[in-house]
Amino acid sequence: MTSTSTPPGLARFNTLPEDTARAALLEVCASTAWAERLLAARPWATPDDFHAASDAALAELTDADLREAMAGHPPIGRPGRGDPASAREQRGMTGASDALKAELLDLNLAYQEKFGHVFLIRATGRTGEQLRDALEERIGNTPEQEYETARAELGKINRIRLARLLEETSDRPNA
């Protein structure tokens, strides 16, 4: 993105007090290491710079950091109470049949038993059936394949959430 001025939402985010910015970043991604890397990289001139910094921080996460990030996500089909981001992202589960919900629960439990962490996928824009199909496919991965797939999916989720964060920050009169 080539722009002579920083977009309002990003400009406001760049100037948030560190504690406020950290809290906002941890709502995007529960990895403390990821949030700290982004805080240390402020300010950004463009949203593309912001996303690139997020991608770079994600690539540097250790296995423990990635587990911390994944622990911040509820299972597919069961968004956390009071978690508007997960509810919005899992909107494709709205209206899913009880049979599909039960199938997803069983698959989620099998996945967690095999891999030791929640099934992580960019759910935005996907139907319950698409989520189930992806879960069925990925449960056949090796742990190494699945860890890298989960890392890639976390990157997609983070990009969506960061874009929303900049929109929300843009709407604040005195952020």
Score class of each variant (00 low, 15 high):
3 S>D: 10
4 T>E: 15
5 S>M: 15
6 T>G: 08
7 P>A: 10
8 P>Y: 14
9 G>T: 02
9 G>N: 01
12 R>A: 15
12 R>N: 14
13 F>H: 00
13 F>G: 05
15 T>P: 13
16 L>D: 03
20 T>F: 15
20 T>M: 14
20 T>H: 15
21 A>G: 00
22 R>E: 06
26 L>K: 03
27 E>F: 04
27 E>T: 09
28 V>G: 03
31 S>A: 07
31 S>C: 04
33 A>R: 09
34 W>R: 04
38 L>A: 00
39 L>S: 05
40 A>W: 09
40 A>L: 10
40 A>T: 10
40 A>Q: 11
42 R>P: 02
42 R>K: 01
42 R>H: 00
42 R>W: 06
44 W>M: 03
49 D>F: 11
49 D>E: 14
50 F>N: 01
50 F>E: 00
52 A>H: 13
52 A>W: 10
54 S>L: 01
57 A>V: 00
57 A>Y: 03
57 A>H: 02
58 L>D: 01
59 A>I: 01
59 A>P: 00
60 E>P: 05
63 D>A: 13
64 A>Y: 03
64 A>E: 11
65 D>C: 02
66 L>K: 04
67 R>F: 09
69 A>R: 07
71 A>H: 09
73 H>Q: 06
75 P>L: 01
77 G>K: 03
77 G>R: 02
78 R>A: 15
78 R>G: 14
82 G>S: 08
82 G>A: 08
82 G>L: 02
84 P>I: 03
85 A>K: 10
86 S>L: 01
87 A>H: 14
93 M>I: 13
93 M>K: 12
96 A>D: 09
96 A>K: 05
98 D>Y: 09
98 D>T: 11
101 K>V: 12
101 K>M: 14
101 K>P: 05
102 A>F: 11
102 A>N: 10
103 E>S: 09
104 L>T: 05
105 L>N: 14
106 D>C: 10
107 L>Y: 13
108 N>D: 09
110 A>F: 07
111 Y>S: 08
111 Y>K: 07
111 Y>R: 07
112 Q>P: 13
117 H>Q: 11
117 H>G: 08
117 H>W: 12
119 F>P: 06
119 F>G: 07
121 I>A: 13
122 R>C: 14
122 R>A: 13
129 E>H: 11
130 Q>C: 10
133 D>C: 05
134 A>K: 11
134 A>W: 08
134 A>M: 12
136 E>L: 12
136 E>Y: 07
136 E>K: 11
139 I>W: 02
140 G>N: 14
142 T>I: 07
142 T>W: 04
143 P>F: 06
143 P>K: 04
144 E>I: 10
145 Q>V: 11
145 Q>W: 09
146 E>Y: 05
146 E>T: 04
146 E>G: 03
147 Y>M: 14
148 E>L: 14
149 T>S: 15
150 A>W: 06
153 E>K: 05
154 L>K: 04
154 L>G: 00
155 G>S: 07
156 K>G: 12
156 K>V: 11
157 I>V: 06
158 N>W: 00
159 R>E: 06
159 R>T: 09
160 I>S: 08
161 R>M: 06
164 R>G: 04
164 R>C: 04
164 R>Q: 06
167 E>N: 03
168 E>N: 07
168 E>F: 07
169 T>S: 06
170 S>H: 02
171 D>C: 13
171 D>G: 14
172 R>Q: 15
174 N>E: 15
175 A>R: 10
